[in-house]
Design a protein around this nucleic acid. Structure first.
Lengths: 169, 169
DNA sequence: ATCATTGCAAAAGATTTGCAAGGTC
DNA sequence: GACCTTGCAAATCTTTTGCAATGAT
């Protein structure tokens, strides 16, 4: 959730802004550029954190205010962002979570089951392992998703502090 | 403590049936052994495939027939199987999927986005990689889940056959 | 007898859809 | 003008919950 988790952008892959890229995508499919879509690209790419539909909606103007976007439109647009290659979706605790894809390097996650923070990490070894397994099974890889569940450093620390103080369960 | 314990532990974890293990779990928590629970353990461990709640329910006797179990009870019991260490749960396409955990080796999955088959594979390298990453982030690992998405061998084959015949999309 | 469990109906949470009105090309 | 998009309300899908009746220990 904190900005520190963001991996370094690769200058290479970014020649076009997400907004431009989305415009291109819409054109190529005969879809239309609307206020709502433009505003949502802007909002979604204004921060790097992972988010779900509700978190995005909370970040938007309420009903009645300028730039409000209805819930169904948010869902419909998120789906388009995924199709357009701007976002990647995955599932955590039964809900869809989105993260930047466009211009952002491939990575995996450490998920703290206590404070729910999602930390990112990169591992070339993993990509290699993936290719080996795929080869062995004659499987054509499209993508992968690795999530390591556990307790993060700071939750570990506060847990042991608590234990010392309260003599604990 | 004593050697006895070690032996016993070993014997228990290797030779006890899922049903027995579940009975033990229930006892240890002051929960009760019921027809429904006994029947569900039996059903769940009668086949090894992955399944979701609906698939399990479809496999059970319908309402009015003997051994019918209501939908809420199925959900409640699946949760207990997970707590008891009999099943592992993960998410795929927005729904919970269960697989045998008790007495079954750790593994990961290849998921065919075309025919939806889930293939299992084992990789010691992955476990090692997981430990390295965790160490680096001072993360206490509880578990992990890796799913490689792509197209399986047989879908690949039929795709190319189709392509040849129909001169493709 | 006590307290857990079940089944029912209903609720809840996340996401989707039909449709009429409005916007874009 | 054609037809895509939006917002609304309502539907859908999966899972959960309150509660009274039933069952296990």
């Amino acid at each position: 959730m904190s900005e520190n988790n963001a991996l370094q952008f690769d200058a290479v892959s970014v020649s076009q802004s997400p907004a431009d890229r989305f415009e291109e995508y819409l054109q190529s499919r005969g879809l239309r550029s609307t206020d709502q879509r433009r505003y949502l690209v802007e909002q979604v790419f204004s921060r790097h954190e992972h988010f779900d539909a509700d978190q995005l909606i909370d970040q938007l103007p309420r009903k009645g205010e300028a730039n409000h976007v209805s819930r169904p439109t948010v869902y419909r647009t998120l789906k388009e962002f995924v199709d357009a290659g701007l976002l990647r979706r995955f599932e955590l605790n039964g809900r869809s979570v989105y993260e930047h894809d466009y211009g952002y390097p491939e990575h995996d996650h450490l998920y703290c089951v206590k404070c729910h923070v999602l930390l990112e990490f990169q591992s070339d070894q993993l990509v290699q392992l993936r290719e080996e397994v795929a080869k062995q099974y004659r499987f054509r890889v499209r993508s992968h998703r690795l999530i390591i569940h556990g307790i993060c450093e700071s939750c570990n620390r506060s847990a042991s502090r608590t234990r010392r103080k309260q003599d604990l369960v």
